[in-house]
Amino acid sequence: MTIIEFRDVYFRYNEEQNWVLRNISFSVNAGDSIAIIGHNGSGKSTVAKLINGLLVPQAGDILIDGERVTEQNIWEVRQKAGMVFQNPENQFVGTTVRDDIAFGLENRGIPREEMIKRIERSLNEVGMQDFALHEAHYLSGGQKQRVAIASVMAIQPEVLILDEATSMLDPVGRNEIIKTIQHLKDERNITFLTITHDLSEVTLADRTLVLKEGKLVTDTTPRELFAQVNDWESLGLTEPFTTKIANELEKYGYKFSSHPLNHEELMNELWTYNLKK
């Protein structure tokens, strides 16, 4: 079942400027996890903001769950597609963790008893149950982002969009978020859309969309992508160490059955290499 569909979408911020997105068409199946990558200014954040109606395209249609996003159904769309932004500090509305998660629920007029249940559940899901009464400035960046994820999950969306949600975090915080997302993938059947510069997040996706200067240039699996790409920097990524080694080895005549995505896979490829011959 298709949950998100872009049909020939064009977008620009104003008429004097160039198109930010040009002729974008793709569709996403429910339950998939998609990584969108691209250089700064490639339009990837714009795609995210178009999905939940924070921006409106100049031409083309965006369909969420089979319905066209319009001014009228924008609030239902936002119920279906929740979004976590880049800066952990600037999306924390409530004074305490509990109040912050309640904010989205209050906006939708959820009764108080139901709210309490949902807050508890979503805090458990992100492992922040002991912090319910903590104030924002006593939390680390990673913890704040986990709260942001919890407050989206409390709305029970069908799509979770992470708009560079880990880019302002330290490695510890980034790992926290990646673990939380993996846990959520196992627990709930929702669609993930991750906009990222971080390769470990790309490898977790089922599918990667690559944007370049507002155009969709590649739509493939992460494994395929890693084997194909020559110019990593043009995608706004740094070439992963394993890919570097694998490519160097291929120059010397090694042939891998599938392109190794991480250290473990590379190691397995290497120590079984001579056995397979």
């Binding site: 600037n90 509305v93 509990r98 939708r108 807050i119």
Partner: peptide
Amino acid sequence: RAEDLAMAMEARGYRGGEGRTKLR
């Protein structure tokens, strides 16, 4: 920050005081 916050609030379904429930 205010701009970011406004965007985040909108994404989380804030549309004024009408029809809002309260946790506290």
